[in-house]
């Protein structure tokens, strides 16, 4: 399985979609938002808030991109080829989940480093540890949703569905524009999205607050839903592979 993960990571790093949507775009948007004064409030706080938002946005991008890869692999007959190696189906799925989890690291790291080096963001060591962990672990539900789409839909459709879902979740979840600027009805919706709950955990952390019970519960709920969805997609793909 380490061989599979290595192969998939190499393929990701050579994937333009991953580099652009997962790493470059979030950094560029972060620099734009924080240096054009779009984010309201105190400059340091704004840089902190947007850093979390854009790290979350980039992590979503690479988590979903990983799922789209599954649809591409299926179309290329790669999943069938894998079934003909000694790898078990469980190892293949686990390998893909691990690839997704590792693939978000550069996305998160790129934005956090930009925060430190360009916007001179300061946090306590404990806070850094907290947001890195939360931003990282919190991507699992999105990886699962992306994989579910990848297993269930065909190549092109899966990429489009994942891109649309990713952008929708990023925007409605308040990663691009804080939900404080939303009309009430949209903010009410935002608070139920997994993306908003995911980022909220780290927004609270950088503000020196404990993670909220509600956002934790919402994200955990989505984790279950997307996990079931990924399992359903995988079973369906198994019947048609």
């Amino acid at each position: 399985m380490p061989g599979y993960i290595r192969l998939e990571l190499v393929r990701s790093l050579r994937d333009g979609g991953y580099i652009v949507f997962g790493v470059i775009m979030p950094v560029v948007m972060y620099l734009l938002f924080t240096n054009l004064g779009i984010t309201p409030g105190d400059k340091h706080d704004a840089a902190l808030f947007a850093m979390v938002s854009m790290a979350a946005y980039g992590a979503l991008g690479s988590a979903f991109n990983n799922g789209s890869g599954i649809a591409e692999d299926r179309a290329a007959g790669w999943l069938r080829q894998l079934r003909l190696t000694p790898l078990t189906p469980a190892q293949v799925v686990a390998g893909k989940v691990v690839t997704g989890v590792l693939g978000v690291v550069p996305s998160i790291a790129a934005v956090l480093l930009t925060g430190v080096l360009v916007n001179h963001v300061t946090l306590t060591a404990a806070q850094w540890v907290q947001i890195v962990a939360l931003l990282w672990v919190g991507t699992v539900p999105f990886s699962l949703l992306g994989l579910g789409n990848g297993y269930r839909l065909s190549g092109q459709t899966a990429s489009m569905a994942n891109l649309a879902t990713m952008l929708g979740l990023a925007i409605v979840g308040g990663l691009w524009i804080p939900t404080t600027n939303f009309p009430d009805w949209l903010r009410a919706i935002a608070e139920w999205t997994p993306s908003n709950s995911y980022a909220s955990l780290s927004w609270h952390a950088v503000a020196g607050e404990a993670p909220g019970l509600r956002e934790t519960a919402v994200l955990a709920g989505w984790l279950v839903v997307f996990g079931l969805y990924a399992m359903y997609g995988y079973r369906r793909a198994g019947r048609t592979a």
């Binding site: 290595r6 190499v10 591409e72 290329a76 003909l84 190696t85």
Partner: peptide, 27 residues
């Protein structure tokens, strides 16, 4: 298949993007 006693070449597929021959066969 799990015991590695079989190798197979289906009618099509298995050629994936963004890897070299060496990387693919090493895997």
């Amino acid at each position: 298949v799990r015991q590695g006693r079989v190798g197979a070449m289906p009618q099509e597929g298995g050629i994936i993007a963004r890897v070299t021959v060496r990387e693919l066969l090493t895997f």
